[in-house]
Structure formats: C-alpha cells, structure tokens
Design a protein around this nucleic acid. Structure first.
Lengths: 127, 127
DNA sequence: ACTAGCCACGTACAACTGTACTTGACTCGT
DNA sequence: ACGAGTCAAGTACAGTTGTACGTGGCTAGT
C-alpha cells in the first residue's frame, strides 16, 4: 500500500466521490458545498492527483472521464485521524473525543447514540 | 487573528512547547518522542516558523533563545479538528466520535469517562 | 459548415513544508 | 590562548499543495 496521503483539498473531493459514487468531474464540481467555490479545472486537477496517488481509478467513456474511488473512506479516515491524533495529542485518542464532545455542539440525539455505543462496548468488555 | 494555520510538523513541536512550557530549542529537541528523530536545526526552523505565524514568542537571554507558546492548545486544536471535520466529514463531528470510539482502542476507563461526560451533558440539557 | 459550449490534458506557478547544511559568534575546559 | 562544543541565523532545496489558465478536440444547435 503505502500510498502517499491525501492532502486536505484532495480529501474534500474524495469525500464527494464516496458520497455520490462514481462520477464525472462536473458532477463532483456541482456537488461541492456552495461555500466552497472552486474552479472546474481545480477539481479536475484534484481528481487527477487522487488517482495518481492510488485512491481512485477512472475510465473514459466517449469524451467524459468518470472517476471511482478505489480506497475505502474508512481507511483514509483512519490514516488522517491517526496522523492528527499523533501530532496533536501524542497518540492518545481520548482527549480528542473529549474535545469533540465538550467543544463541538453535538445534539441530544447524537449524545444518546454515543452513550448507547459505549454501553454496548462496555458490555462486550465485561464478558 | 487569522494566523496562518500550523502545519502538521509545526503542531508536533508546538505540542511539546505546551507540555513543557517555555523552553529552548534544545529542550524541545530532547523531549521529542524517540521514534521521531529530527535534526536539531529542523526543530529550530519549526520554532522560527511557529513564531513567525504568531503562535509563539521568544526572547533571547545571553546566547540562548527561549520560546513560549502564545496560542492556547485549545485554539489550535479547535481549528485543526474543525478543519478535519469539515474536509472529511462535511462538518459533522458525530461520525468522527463514532470512528474514534469504534476504531481506535479506548480502554474501559476511557469509555467510562466518556460515558460520565455524556450523562452529565444530558442532565444539563434536560433542565 | 459555423459557432458556442464542454471537456481532457498539459502546463504553470507561487506558497508552503519537511528537512537540513553552513557560517560565524561565543564559551568552557585545559 | 586553543580547541571542542553550542547556538542563532541565514540559506537551501526538492516535493507538495492550492489554484488555475490555455489549447485543441468534439458536439449540438442553427
């Protein structure tokens, strides 16, 4: 494996690609959040780089190139989060979880979900 | 404010600076995790850049320069995590919390702590 | 057949990053 | 007073990143 990591900008595009499945440059460009204006050609460049790094593949049909993710979000997320946790928290994930829960508004529903998740894990551990 | 964000490598150094308080280049260099060998001059460069970006200040006393963080970890963490959450999760923090709990080993004690934290927040919310 | 629009592809380019060497000043033990 | 070590500061330099322009081919409407 050992693909070079995706850059922040590349991740943004990759995310859209995971979300809407195989897509053309234009489709991805259109699905970008409105507050994230970006030139069509820029999206094109990102996709080319994402493919070059081995996170996507593409085929051309007619005149249009279609990109498909070839790496799972889970993998990319694992690496990116791992990196952040290492650099900013010395490898400890707990402080990051704490930060997220305390500092970033997670609503009641979200909290409940996490609580259930934890209770479940704790039961497993007890066994 | 609007300081340019710290790069990953810079964060690593900034973290040590927060941990051990105002320190000289050498002190920081020595406190780096063993698996993260880095030339003394590299640390020097990072510190210079961290200062240039406005996240630290330094004074020279005698021949030795001492750096002190001038930004709080909380701020830097907020920004870095916010960035990641935006790019990789479209701004939703819940999936990141889920990922951390499910995928990164957090031990029983950690889980219990998070659970308590959540219960506390839920109580607050109820009121 | 002509034109306006769309697209891939190559190219560009400055800023930022990671990483470090070099030089010149100072300092301490001999 | 000399050599070994220490440090700041300047410089270097290739690779990555963000962002985009230009060119030339195809295509659908006139």
């Amino acid at each position: 494996m050992a693909r070079p990591a995706l850059s922040k900008g590349e991740m943004e595009i990759a995310r859209v690609l995971w979300e809407i499945g195989p897509a053309t440059v234009r489709e991805i460009h259109e699905r970008l959040p409105a507050d994230r204006a970006m030139n069509f050609a820029t999206v094109q460049t990102y996709l080319r780089r994402i493919e070059a790094k081995g996170y996507a593949s593409s085929t051309i049909s007619g005149r249009v190139r279609t990109y498909a993710a070839s790496a799972k979000p889970r993998t990319v997320i694992r690496d990116a989060v791992g990196e952040l946790v290492d650099r900013l928290f010395g490898g400890e994930s707990l402080p990051l979880v704490r930060h997220l829960i305390e500092q970033r508004g997670i609503d009641g529903e979200g909290l409940a979900e996490i609580r259930k998740l934890i209770e479940q894990l704790e039961r497993q551990e007890d066994k």
